[in-house]
């Protein structure tokens, strides 16, 4: 695989506390890498280290086969980014901010600014000064700024914060287009699983500065098998029926009235029928899949126990 960003044994210590500890990551060309972790897990610090804003205490970062040194800056030309809160020059207008950005990067392409404002839905307010912008508008403009120079890598730190549901959907679609049409590699962080679950190819889960797992979405989907969730009035009776009448052994009781079945030999209608015939009141029966949210919580809690 051709990796675009490679991180080896990266650690960062701030005043004696290790905020990032021995992280290894591999981001491949053209993929969307979702970076998941609760607030304060070290996501932003790692992203800042990739951008050379924060200097690693130990370890190395390799971007486009080049090791990042303290004095490196040329490679930044190929990276678009939003880190934390999108900052702009408040006294300038949206368009002036983007024009300035292009000039700093050295990207001269007439029409690019207008085009990108159109894409993020800020057409019509480009002459407004930034201090009149709402957080959502700034966030959109931040994304516009990150992509206007057509970078090869996008680093987006919680880009969906402050956006309305339509905005979130727009951005998700935009990221997919950028990936598919332009082959841009995207590193996107979030503390909300559902935000990136649907678009990421690889997910890195981080907590307390440690990368707990780096896994392909496909594998997660495979790992998280389907199950049947049944709501009943009497659990004892139900387990009896399941074990003795249907021969089901793989089940799990998750609530006072909820039971999950992980075997697929019997169809839901069969199970339903058998339970009713044996006098169990079935209030609901539903096929479900563990979602990433649970998977993620499980991993983080597991991580806590080890720590």
């Amino acid at each position: 695989m051709n990796s675009v960003i490679q991180i080896n044994q990266l650690s960062k210590t701030y005043r004696g506390t290790e905020t990032v500890s021995n992280v290894n990551m591999n981001i491949n060309k053209g993929e969307i890498y979702g970076f998941l972790g609760p607030n304060g897990a070290g996501k932003t610090t790692i992203m800042k280290m990739i951008l050379n804003l924060v200097k690693p205490s130990l370890g190395e970062i390799i971007v486009f086969d080049q090791r990042i040194l303290e004095t490196s800056y040329e490679y930044l030309k190929k990276i678009g980014s939003i880190i934390e809160y999108p900052e702009f020059y408040e006294r300038l207008t949206a368009k002036e901010n983007l024009d300035l950005h292009c000039e700093y990067i050295g990207y001269h392409h007439p029409g690019a600014v207008n085009e990108v404002l159109e894409i993020v839905g800020l057409k019509g307010v480009e002459k407004k000064k930034i201090h009149e912008f709402s957080l959502g508008m700034k966030q959109r403009l931040g994304i516009a700024r990150a992509i206007v120079t057509k970078p090869e890598i996008l680093i987006l730190d919680e880009p969906i914060n402050g956006l309305d549901p339509i905005g979130i959907k727009d951005i998700r679609e935009l990221l997919l287009i950028l990936k598919e049409k332009y082959g841009i590699t995207i590193l996107i962080s979030s503390h909300i699983v559902s935000e990136i679950e649907s678009i990421a190819d690889t997910i890195g889960i981080i907590n307390h500065g440690r990368l707990l797992k780096e896994v392909k979405m496909e594998e997660i989907r495979k790992e998280n098998e389907e199950y049947l969730e049944i709501q009943v009035d009497n659990l004892e009776k139900t387990t009896h029926v399941l074990k003795n009448k249907l021969g089901i052994k793989k089940y799990e009781i998750v609530g006072r009235h909820i039971i999950r079945i992980f075997e697929h030999e019997n169809s839901s209608s069969q199970i339903n029928k058998e339970l009713i015939l044996n006098g169990v009141v079935v209030n609901g029966i539903e096929k479900q899949q563990h979602n990433l949210e649970e998977y993620f919580l499980k991993l983080i809690n597991g991580g806590n126990q080890h720590a």
Partner: peptide, 12 residues
Amino acid sequence: SNTIQVLFTYPL
């Protein structure tokens, strides 16, 4: 205003 952070992500 922390725009220095933006400025330092430029290839300069």
